[in-house]
Amino acid sequence: MRILSLSNVTKTFGGLVAVGGVSCGVERGSVVGLIGPNGAGKTTVFNLITGSIKPDDGHIFFSGHSISGLKPHKVVTLGVARTFQTIRLFPKLSALENVLSGCHCRMRSGLISSVLRLPSQRLEEKLVIDRAMSELEFVGLARLWRSSSGSLPYGDQRRLEIARALATEPKLLILDEPAGGMNEQETIELRKLVFNIRDRDITVLLIEHDMSFVMHVCDQLLVMENGLLIAQGEPQDIQKDPKVIEAYLGVDDDR
């Protein structure tokens, strides 16, 4: 069953076709990699799915809802969470507070119960800290809960961003270059983390340039070039696909 499907999604910036009629789907429970050379339009596809930008044409469906053109916070509430290519934590706030931002959309307390400190609000505050700590522990950062996120090492910041996204209780998690800037050891740990996320019945869609990571982690690959989807399939087939090889290595002029 497809949890996410794009049909003929198009986005142009001025004269540039960033995404030109992309149609594809993501199976529930899978780990799908979106790859392609720089400027292929991968991050634009992510921004279209999460509502940061609106498509000019086409439709995006997420578990039965049309989400094209919805505001980002609505898309998150429906169950799509993301991380950013360039880390976008709240650097001055603690790791715990960062994760609490993800918990927000699953909480209920409003203005009145907060200003009057009703028992329901105080109970919810307790439960939400418990929940945030569980997510921090899940990514292995619980002991650093009081550290300001900006002071954490790069790899930890990446994992904290994942914890924050998981706190929104997503059904689909979108990771934009999660291994970017990570060393070899951290990348191996990230691999395990992605499998653990999948085991929680969360579908994962990721952009990544580290090919060995992509080949190890993904069940399915989508390949983009110049705003178009040029191939999709299992990693070992994609590796042999002439179109993909051409996109990455270029054609031999002498042939």
């Binding site: 999460t50 934590l89 307390s109 907060s114 200003v115 919810e124």
Partner: peptide
Amino acid sequence: WLENSRFGRALKFIKEDAVAAENMG
């Protein structure tokens, strides 16, 4: 009380980075 609640935290996240806050729901 308001500052240390879901409402107050939401304002803090918006002040720090409105785009990130919106994308966290």
